[in-house]
Design a protein around this nucleic acid. Structure first.
Lengths: 162, 162
DNA sequence: AACATATCATACGGAATCCAAAACACAAGA
DNA sequence: TCTTGTGTTTTGGATTCCGTATGATATGTT
């Protein structure tokens, strides 16, 4: 906190700190939104998280899912049981390795989820409408990089390379 | 979906969609990171969330915390019990209204938390280092607006104006 | 002083999570 | 081929956590 800025860019440190603060807030708010959506779908918070992961990261094995989140395999079995009972995912045996299981997302009930997220969806549209096309590209790039950084940081805590 | 872009800004729709995708990923990754941090601190996911809220939003009453997150007051009691047992927070009686309780965050163990988040912290620093000061301001502003949008969207699902 | 209101803690039933071990499939060696 | 060893997922039991209902304490009002 010197009176003179060190490299003639006075706002950098403050802006970086502001970004971190905003990211903390954003995470909490999005988790809260997630909780509300899950409540409307009779779905657990964690279950909805994993449904999202399965929907976007393609078919995955239970073990891979558990490792990715740092959960015990038995816990994953329970989560998948609930998701399967609700018709959200299907378990199939891997033909090439029949001891393995592949979890596939069913898209039947996707409309329900989209409807619940529609409020946030259009809110983001409104926010984005106030930025130029170039700014939007910068924003998307930043978010992707930050998400990648989150993956690495979580993996490190999960036990190094592992 | 006309072949001609409507307002001479061809990338807008794609960039907005990319931002939504990245936000979904970011939320999941930050939640998983949160889970890993909580595991290392012998702390529940929800408990860590509320510790964060208490740390940043100053001393608060248990009821206010419960309303803010849509939890039942009794659940909040359990969360605060665990946080207090671990030496994270302290319950004090409000001098001005002695039936009320204020929860204050103790900073003793803050270093442990910071150490666990240090990987993500420096990763964000590295990402931010690649942007200009003006871009950083745009980013911080966008994140704040998006967080606000998340609050409104969650409130709507919680039961309209309420 | 007594009633109504508000806030937080306790008690208990139901659910989720974790640990250990089993069930099953694959791969390698005698 | 049969056996042994490794990897993946599921089961059973014990523990812990979340949510509804009830109780205790303090305040404000008539």
């Amino acid at each position: 906190m010197l009176p003179l800025s060190p490299d003639a860019t006075p706002g950098r440190r403050q802006s970086t700190a502001a970004i971190k603060e905003a990211l903390r807030d954003l995470r909490i708010q999005l988790s809260l939104l997630n909780h509300q959506v899950g409540t409307h779908l009779d779905l657990n918070d964690v279950d909805l998280d994993f449904l999202d992961v399965i929907n976007r990261s393609g078919p995955l094995s239970p073990g891979a899912l558990a490792r990715r989140a740092g959960f015990h395999p038995a816990t994953m079995t329970g989560i998948l049981d609930r998701l399967e009972r609700g018709g959200w995912v299907a378990r199939e045996r891997d033909p090439s390795d029949r001891r393995a299981v592949v979890v596939r997302a069913l898209r039947n009930r996707n409309a329900e989820v989209m409807r619940l997220y529609s409020g946030m969806n259009s809110a983001i549209d409104n926010v984005c409408a106030e930025y130029t096309s170039a700014e939007l590209k910068v924003l998307a790039d930043f978010l992707r990089r930050t998400a990648k950084a989150g993956i690495r940081a979580a993996d490190e805590l999960a036990g190094g390379a592992r």
